[in-house]
């Protein structure tokens, strides 16, 4: 379990991270999302004891990283943004070194084998790290973090440099690890966070801009009152009928998707679900509904809105509970 309380880091006058607080429970996968330079890596470096915080506290399994760094570091497996690989060593020699460095008590051979199998690097174990492709280097970096089977994993952009197939593999692996590890994962790839993480924290300019589950984040800004419908029928009549729905704010025919079938975008007063109304008028007029959906915001939209500084009220909890 990771507890972060009011963590702040100043570089001179610049506040790289400003008063961040959050908790990650055991067995939870937390996604750190934010544009480059938002403070993701700085936060992770503070959590792992690589740099100190200006103020605030980070507890790893209840151990303060600044008060008892060695005690806290024992619990952490860290994959930094640039994997700390010694290029002049073979994969096996390097992982053995990490094993010794972490003063690992597990049976060496079987543990090495497990980790290498898990990261799919057995076939390169005798090659020099220098000669590996970026994807393999990244996986050796992940293996390094997994050595000693630490309960907390902190992974800074673990899928950078991997091809799409490897990305899926690593995500599956992280998801599997998340069952019995506490994982913090940073990324700026939204689909990745959405696919892997239970919870998302969006960081922008050193502050937490949002902290919720991926689904909730979408829900909060999901707009039942904004609907897209694809309806077969005469355009003018349809527009007319929709305008007749009570509380409708605007409607427009977006584009002709198929012959004679237009897509309509409409918005009602907030909080009003107009899907039933749309359905009713179509039944009454004998039009066919070929598609009807609310305009959901993807994590991507939220992310962009937040990071572009547009105002979204994410502090108010969504109506899901």
């Amino acid at each position: 379990m990771i507890e972060v309380r009011n963590l702040t880091k100043h570089y001179g006058d610049k506040k790289a991270v400003n008063d961040i607080s959050f908790t990650v429970e055991d067995g939870e996968i937390l996604g750190f999302l934010g544009p480059n330079g938002a403070g993701k890596s700085t936060t992770m470096n503070m959590l792992t004891g690589y740099i100190s915080s200006t103020s605030g506290q980070a507890l790893i399994n209840g151990v303060d990283i600044l008060e008892d760094p060695i005690g806290a570091k024992k619990y952490i497996g860290y994959l930094p943004e640039i994997p700390p690989l010694y290029l002049d060593m073979t994969v096996k020699a390097y992982l053995n070194f990490v094993f010794d460095l972490k003063k690992c008590k597990l049976p060496r051979r079987s543990h090495m084998k497990d980790v290498m199998t898990l990261c799919k690097i057995q076939d390169v174990e005798d090659r020099l790290i220098r000669n590996l492709s970026k994807g393999y280097k990244q996986r050796v970096g992940l293996a390094q973090a997994l050595i000693g089977n630490p309960p907390v994993l902190i992974l800074d952009e673990p899928t950078v440099g991997l091809d799409p197939k490897q990305m899926v593999e690593i995500r599956t692996l992280i998801k599997r690890l998340g069952k019995n590890h506490t994982v913090i994962l940073s990324s700026h790839i939204l689909s990745e966070i959405q696919a892997v993480c239970d919870r998302v924290i969006i960081i922008n300019k050193g502050v937490v801009a949002a902290d919720d589950t991926a689904t909730n984040l979408s829900n909060q800004v999901t707009t039942d009152h904004r609907v897209i419908a694809r309806i077969e029928g005469e355009k003018a009549a349809i527009l007319q009928a929709i305008r007749g729905i009570e509380g409708i704010k605007y409607v427009r025919a977006d584009m002709e998707r198929e012959e004679g079938i237009w897509e309509y975008e409409m918005e009602a007063e907030p909080g009003q679900d107009i899907r039933r109304d749309v359905n009713r008028i179509c039944r009454e007029n004998d039009w066919n509904i070929l598609l009807l959906k609310t305009m959901e915001m993807t994590l991507e939209d939220i992310f962009l809105k937040i990071t572009m500084g547009e105002h979204i009220d994410l502090t108010a909890k969504g109506g899901d509970q």
Partner: peptide, 14 residues
């Protein structure tokens, strides 16, 4: 230079 110090400094060693 190679950023391997990050591995050492985040390992449980003094």
């Amino acid at each position: 230079k190679q950023r391997t110090d990050q591995g050492l400094l985040t390992a449980p060693v003094s």
